[in-house]
Computed example of a mutant assay.
Amino acid sequence: MRLVSLQSKDVINVYDGRKIGYIADIEVDWCQRCIQALIVEKINFFHFLCFFKEPPVIVIPIQCVVSLKGDVILVNIEHD
């Protein structure tokens, strides 16, 4: 699976059923050749109004990913 195809999927938290956002990037461990974490850009109303600030992101360890199938990525995390 390519990063581009991951970026088009919604990230949903199964803990509370809310949409977290979209994948902005991934962390890769090049020595072990595996993905360490997904970096998700949080969705909020003020995101479109803030041109000069970086968007808030959340780093989700790969162990918290439940499913990558279908149109969504399901994760199980507790966040604010």
Rank of each mutant, 00 (worst) to 15 (best):
V4G: 09
M1L: 06
W30E: 14
K42N: 07
D10K: 03
R2N: 13
Q63K: 00
E27S: 08
Q32Y: 01
G21Q: 06
I23W: 00
I35N: 07
K53E: 10
F51G: 15
S67E: 08
F51P: 10
E41Y: 02
I60N: 03
D80R: 10
F52E: 09
F48D: 14
E78A: 08
K53F: 14
D29C: 06
I26R: 06
I20A: 00
F52C: 13
V11L: 00
I35M: 13
E27T: 12
L49I: 15
I58M: 05
D71T: 01
N13W: 02
M1K: 08
I73A: 03
Q36D: 07
I20N: 00
Q63I: 01
I12C: 04
N44K: 11
Q63C: 02
F52W: 11
F52N: 13
A37G: 06
E41T: 10
F48E: 12
E54N: 13
R18W: 02
L49N: 09
Y22P: 00
D29Q: 07
I73N: 02
C50R: 14
V72S: 11
I43R: 02
I58C: 03
G21W: 01
Q36E: 13
K9A: 02
L6A: 04
V57L: 08
S67G: 03
I20G: 00
V11A: 01
F52R: 11
F46Q: 07
L74I: 06
Q63L: 02
C64D: 12
L68G: 10
I77E: 05
M1S: 06
V14P: 03
E27R: 05
D25Y: 01
V75S: 02
L38T: 12
V4S: 14
W30T: 13
V14F: 04
L38M: 12
P56Y: 06
E54S: 15
I77K: 03
G70E: 05
R33T: 08
K69I: 07
H79I: 14
C64V: 12
L3I: 15
D29F: 04
A37S: 12
R33A: 11
I23E: 00
M1T: 14
C64N: 15
V72P: 00
G17I: 11
D29P: 01
D80P: 09
F46G: 04
C34Y: 05
V75G: 01
P56D: 15
R2K: 12
I39R: 02
V72H: 12
V4C: 09
